[in-house]
Amino acid sequence: MQVDFQKVLEVFRKVKQLKEHQELYCLDPKRIPVSISDLTRVVADMYDLKIDVSEVVFTGERLRSLVERYADNHAIIYVKHDLTPEVQRFSVTKELMHLVIDEPEDWSPAGVATLQSFFTEMSIANGDHVAEARAQSEALAEIAAIEVLYPHEFRAAEAVEISTKKTTWAKLCLHYEMPRYALTRAHADWYKKVVDTAWNGI
């Protein structure tokens, strides 16, 4: 799947605005691990939303969470009840990022079709052969979640620490309370190239 790089830039602008609002709104905006309750309140304040998070029981290997948004500015995030705490935190953050980054054309009742067209690996395009908007929004929400939970400014030093065995993925997972798949993606060469270009572009 390819993702339009212009949409990536717009996502990073919104993430930057979110971080700036967090600085004003939260008593401890630099807290690591990021407080999900604080993040929920920041998103609600920015977009004038009432956001509820509910743990639910459902089966399925790929679906961990989803968000429903209503015309009365109410949003409900449903997250699978039996996830590890790290995966649950990341899943809720991804759904919060949908509320931040999605445009009207990204909201769709066709959730199953959207998930079927979404793959965890993606490439970045400049407008040619881009994926449909709903599938793109899934990919972009995951990127935004990584950028919110794992600040970009820490990664270069931690990449060195990983390579020199001064730290481990397990320690980083505990420190950020994030799943390993999200942390390792943040250090993938293709991801670093995209993120460095995007942050420099805004």
Score class of each variant (00 low, 15 high):
residue 201 G to Q: 15
residue 99 L to W: 10
residue 121 E to C: 03
residue 119 F to M: 05
residue 23 E to T: 10
residue 68 E to V: 14
residue 34 V to Q: 13
residue 91 S to N: 03
residue 120 T to R: 14
residue 89 R to Y: 01
residue 50 K to V: 12
residue 20 E to Q: 14
residue 94 K to P: 04
residue 161 E to Q: 05
residue 31 R to T: 09
residue 29 P to W: 06
residue 17 Q to C: 00
residue 129 H to T: 05
residue 135 A to C: 05
residue 137 S to G: 06
residue 153 E to C: 09
residue 112 V to L: 15
residue 46 M to L: 15
residue 186 A to C: 07
residue 54 S to N: 15
residue 46 M to K: 07
residue 182 A to S: 03
residue 177 E to R: 11
residue 127 G to L: 07
residue 92 V to C: 00
residue 173 C to W: 00
residue 30 K to A: 15
residue 105 E to F: 00
residue 133 A to M: 01
residue 157 A to H: 05
residue 98 H to F: 03
residue 146 I to D: 05
residue 155 R to E: 01
residue 121 E to G: 08
residue 69 R to G: 07
residue 108 S to C: 09
residue 58 F to R: 03
residue 193 K to M: 09
residue 116 Q to G: 11
residue 9 L to C: 10
residue 153 E to Y: 14
residue 148 V to E: 09
residue 181 Y to D: 08
residue 4 D to R: 08
residue 61 E to M: 03
residue 160 V to G: 03
residue 157 A to S: 11
residue 120 T to V: 03
residue 187 H to A: 14
residue 19 K to N: 13
residue 8 V to F: 02
residue 155 R to P: 04
residue 19 K to C: 12
residue 141 A to N: 03
residue 106 D to C: 11
residue 106 D to T: 14
residue 184 T to N: 06
residue 161 E to W: 01
residue 66 L to C: 09
residue 145 A to W: 09
residue 114 T to V: 14
residue 41 R to F: 07
residue 128 D to Y: 15
residue 122 M to F: 12
residue 128 D to N: 09
residue 65 S to R: 00
residue 134 R to F: 00
residue 71 A to P: 03
residue 197 T to V: 12
residue 39 L to N: 09
residue 69 R to M: 14
residue 65 S to Y: 06
residue 56 V to Q: 11
residue 60 G to A: 02
residue 116 Q to N: 12
residue 150 Y to Q: 03
residue 24 L to S: 11
residue 34 V to L: 11
residue 63 L to V: 10
residue 121 E to S: 14
residue 147 E to W: 04
residue 8 V to T: 00
residue 59 T to K: 11
residue 135 A to Y: 12
residue 174 L to V: 01
residue 97 M to F: 05
residue 109 P to I: 08
residue 8 V to I: 06
residue 38 D to P: 04
residue 78 Y to F: 15
residue 66 L to M: 14
residue 63 L to A: 10
residue 25 Y to K: 10
residue 194 V to A: 13
residue 164 T to W: 04
residue 143 I to T: 05
residue 141 A to T: 04
residue 110 A to T: 09
residue 19 K to V: 08
residue 169 W to Y: 13
residue 174 L to A: 07
residue 71 A to G: 08
residue 37 S to Y: 12
residue 64 R to A: 15
residue 101 I to S: 02
residue 171 K to I: 00
residue 146 I to R: 12
residue 18 L to N: 07
residue 44 A to N: 06
residue 41 R to T: 10
residue 110 A to R: 14
